[in-house]
Structures are given as C-alpha cells and as structure tokens.
Nucleic acid binder design. Sequence first.
DNA 1: TCACGCTGTTCTGGATCCAAAAACCACGAA
DNA 2: TTCGTGGTTTTTGGATCCAGAACAGCGTGA
Lengths: 260, 260
Amino acid sequence: MSAQNAAPRGTTAAPASSADGGAAALKQLAGQHATGYRSVGVMVYDILKDAILSGALLPGQKLRQETLAELIGVSRLPVRSALIQLEADGLVEFHDRRGAVVKSLSPAQAKEVYDIRVLLEVEALRLTMAALTDARVARLRELGKAADRQQEGSDFVDARTEFYAELYDAEQRPVLWEMIEQLRLKVGRYVLGWRLVGDAEHSHTHEQLIEAVASGEVDRAVDVLRDHLVGVRDAVLELLEAESTAADAAAPASRGRSPR
Amino acid sequence: MSAQNAAPRGTTAAPASSADGGAAALKQLAGQHATGYRSVGVMVYDILKDAILSGALLPGQKLRQETLAELIGVSRLPVRSALIQLEADGLVEFHDRRGAVVKSLSPAQAKEVYDIRVLLEVEALRLTMAALTDARVARLRELGKAADRQQEGSDFVDARTEFYAELYDAEQRPVLWEMIEQLRLKVGRYVLGWRLVGDAEHSHTHEQLIEAVASGEVDRAVDVLRDHLVGVRDAVLELLEAESTAADAAAPASRGRSPR
DNA sequence: TCACGCTGTTCTGGATCCAAAAACCACGAA
DNA sequence: TTCGTGGTTTTTGGATCCAGAACAGCGTGA
C-alpha cells in the first residue's frame, strides 16, 4: 500500500540529501503518509521519525519549524508537537531558543544501549520461553519470514518490530516492551544502514533464533540472541567510529559553508 | 530557595484535593515554580509532574487544557506542550480528541517496573563498584544524609534522585540512568505515599547501602539493593491492590456525580 | 588588518482565533 | 418508564498572529 521505491539509499556515508537538509527525501516521506486518519501532529511525528531513521535527516541537522511545516504542508504547530515527542524519544534535542537539531549518539552511548538491550531482551526471552504455545511459535515463523522479506524502506523496521513484539510478548509485558522499543529507536538510524555494512550471515539470525526458541532450549536461545546483539553492537560501533572521524574531517569545511 | 511548606499531604488514600480535581494544590505548586528562567512550557511540565507525583492529580483525572491554563496563569499552548511531554513519560494518556487523563498503573505493570529496575539498577551498581573512588563514597554519604533529612514535599524526590544519580554515576552512563529515571517516574506517585504505608526501617536503607558499597563487597551491596527494591515493590503492589478495589467500590458513585 | 559594536533580519516560543468533533441534555415516542 | 434522536454546548486540535531573543552583516575605530 505504501512505498516500495528507493527512499533510503546510501544512508551510510554521504546521503544524497545532505546538501538540501533532506528536503527532497522528506517530501517523499510526507507523501507516503496520507493514509487513514491520524491527528496531523502524529502524522508529522511519523514522517520525521522515518526521516531520521532512514537517514534523510542526519545528526546535527538543524530542524527549522517553518521549513518543515511548509515542506510537509501543515502549519508550524503540529511540527512543534512532533518535535517535542521526538525529543522525548531522544531523537532530537532542543537548544533553548535556538530550535531543535537531530541528536547524535556517541559511541559510548551506543554501547550502553546495546548492553542494556542484552539485559532486557534476554530477560524478555526467558519470560517468553517460560510459557510458549505452539500457536505463538507458528506466528513467529510467519513474522520472521515477513521480516526477512521486507529488507527495504521503513516497512523494514516495522516488520522487524512486529516480530520482536511477538517474540517478547509485548501485550503481556507492556513496560518491558516499551523500554526495549525505546532503546531500539535510539540506534534505529544506524541499524537501517547496518545491512549495508554487515555481512549476509546476519540475515539468518531470525531463523536461528526461532529454531532455538521452538526447541525449548532456553540457554541456546539466549546465546543466539546475545551473540546477535553483540554482533550488531560491534558493527554499529565500528560504523559510528568511522562516521565520527569522517565528521571531524568534514565538519570544519561544511560548517564554514553557510547553508543557504 | 524553593518551597519547604507542606504541599503534598495525605497523598495516599483520599487527598483533600480530589473533589476539585486538585485545583487548590495545583495553584500551590504553580506558585513555587517562580524560580529562574525556564521556558513556560517546561515550567508547566514541572508543575504538572509534581502535581501528579504528589497525588494532587489522581489517576483517571481528566486534564482539561483551558482549566489548567488559567489555573497556572498561562495560555493553553504551553499546557499542550507539557501534556505531550508527560505522555511520553507515561504519566498521562491522550484519548483521540477527548483530551488527556492521568494514567494509572495496573498492579501487573508496577511489578514489571520493579522487576526491570532490579535488573538495571543491579547492573548499574555493579558497574559503579567496579571503579569507585573515595571521593564518590564521601559524596554519597553526604547526599544520603540530605535525602534522609528531606522527607517531605517534592524536594524529597529530588534529593533521592540526586543520591541515586551519584550512586549510579549518571554522568558516565546517561542512557542507563535515563532508563532508570523513567522507571522511577512511573511509580513515583506511589512511592511518595510509601512513607505513609511503609515502616520506618526502610529509612535505614541508604545507610546500609552506602556502607555495603563503601566496603567494596559487591554481592552484599547488590543484595541490599535488591531487597530494598523488592520490599518497596511489594508495598506498592499492596497499596495498588487496595486502591483499585477502593476505586471499584467508589467509582460507580463518583462517576454518577457530574464534575461541575 | 583585526577586533569590536551597532543594526537589521530571522527564528523561536507564546497568545489568540477558528473549525470540527464529541459530550451533554432535553424532548418525544414506544 | 425507558430508549432513541436531535440540537446545543463544550473542548480539543489546528492556523494565524505577535513579541522578544539570537544571529548575521556591516561599518567604524584602534
């Protein structure tokens, strides 16, 4: 129903959108969100979130309210609402009276995120496996396949999210799930680029995980999960290091260029 | 510098403010926040947060924007900003086009909160104790005493927060601390009432904890922390059960009374 | 030549105004 | 008497307007 065209491409090093501040890509995303009724505020929120996660808006990017407003085609007010929500999510940062910018993540913080995720997700997995039905396993297989199929665009994130929501039994444990979601969000931007850096073997993770879960061997399942997370963590850290040194090199120049 | 008068009193069962929707208490709180410069939006946010945490605004309480606005003495807009932030914190809940209400916590969710807190805070404590300086210990003793002294008002929360921020080295581990803070916030409302229900022995927790930390015996410190959290958890659960049954009994009647 | 201060512009944050959806109330019919 | 229906009122959510703070560009003086 929504998009399958190439919105997030080359998100890793130098997105095509870095010059115009992601304007073009943003307009793309705005178009895709014309579905059903949601308050304009949350629509804008979704658009901006996608833009950040897909890399159309890069860390450090200044978010001028009026620009965003007319780009999306609404007034400034819902944009402000969306920015406040994004601030709470930790995706953007407000500087008193100087507006909002896309927040960046230091390597140390990224490491924290993944270390905490290991803690929480291992716990979630244990709880899940303590009471697992055949129906749930079947559904997991299904969602896992769906997630593996969707390897492009923002649907990619959604598909994976659904998979993990089922795996961790989000319905039964809303608080734990909320925490995990928050952490996933914080590193979402880097994981979308992940496929580009990482190797293909990682795509088998779902299968391995499901198999281990289905077998009922808790320890093995936990090991698979932990290995996966640590693997992604190290890849993200590598990417972040590269990015920050690249930024250090590029910053002086691009700072000097007045953005008009 | 700020207030030391008795703002939140009798928060546990039936606050005096339940009849007028916390209006009186809210005006109290509004007065106390006249300090330095913060944008009006975050000021309102702080006021409302305090109001909810102190029990001036009870779960289920409808939050009419205009009422709050003129009660605090600002326009509706910063109130909206504040409500959005509070929603992100999980303290209020938006119902599409029907406004915001103070969110309530189910016993199951409260249990989740504390179980996750055990996980995270034990980890935080371990990390802290892996590299602890004498200076930090000294500072902890100081903050601990300050926290024990402040047993009233919203400063109570702040003092304890400072203590734990130091204990868990918030500076060094911002993500982990942020997670812990969020969880503490979710149950904040019940913990403020805690002193009223709980027994006095709990007030020695700080001392025990500090002593164990200072001694360098990680396992013992972890045990103290875990015991404390589990103790509070059970007390909160008890309180929540009582509250929910009381609400079940009272709700039909108070629902019938039109709140004008 | 460089540093400093002044002035005009831009942008955020807050207030006010408007439209549409939801709740409330009263009336009427079964 | 109770349920349904129509109209009125309240209240949210969005758009527009306004004031004050930050920024940039320019000129002047050392």
